[in-house]
Amino acid sequence: MVTQAGFGNHKWAMAVDVDKCTGCQACVLACQVENNIPLNTQDRFERNRSISWIRVERYWEGEFPDIKARFIPIMCQHCENAPCEPVCPVFATYHNAEGMNVQVYNRCVGTRYCANGCPYIVRFFNYWEPVWPESLRNHLNPDVTIRSRGIMEKCSFCVHRVRRGVRKAASESRPLEDGEIQTACQEACPTSALNFGDINDPNSRVSQMKKDDRYYTLMPQLGTSPNVFYLAKVDEDREIALTGAESEGGDGH
């Protein structure tokens, strides 16, 4: 891998502790605000075309009254071996030296091949021109491009925040501290389920979390080796469910 001049030897990763996620949606809106994602109008919901770079999926498990709702935040997994990258005919999406899957909006011609290729369904297509009433444009983030109709977009790992953090450390001639760069979702997450950091730094929080027994990645069988990883949900009832399943001959679920 070519090391990238100027930005240091970082590799960014996100660790998600599923055990802490309450499904409160703070990350969803924080991401939307930070990244100038257009308003998801009712019409967009009804057509299943709402855009949400990070989403909280909710799964039901079991039956009433022992039903459980499981939440999991899912965003672009920034795969090392990303299925979306080779299919792009115009190289609008590529992997950079810092472990990020980058979407270059001005290259994108909107073939949507990448969205078809993505097993995590975290890429969103702009079916409409994004519009804001004039006064609401005041709060748009000047650091992030507005994507127009016909452009693919997805979680960028808040690359503009990463750049800002690296730049700040460089201008102050000091090494980057762990936790100094926060993505918008992580900054909001009240339970600290989301953690962002440099996996190349063995002392970083994400590196520590990667060693946790509960470490897993989504769909490892696909071999995408994501830079987003998860820590499993802990549930005391699980043991009971499993042993129950054993004794009943395997139809417990």
Binding site: G6, F7, N96, E98, T145, S156, V159, H160, R163
Partner: peptide
């Protein structure tokens, strides 16, 4: 000047 040429250095 050996500055970054990663797309995401400028296009964000």
């Amino acid at each position: 000047n050996n500055a970054p040429t990663d797309c995401a250095a400028c296009h964000q």
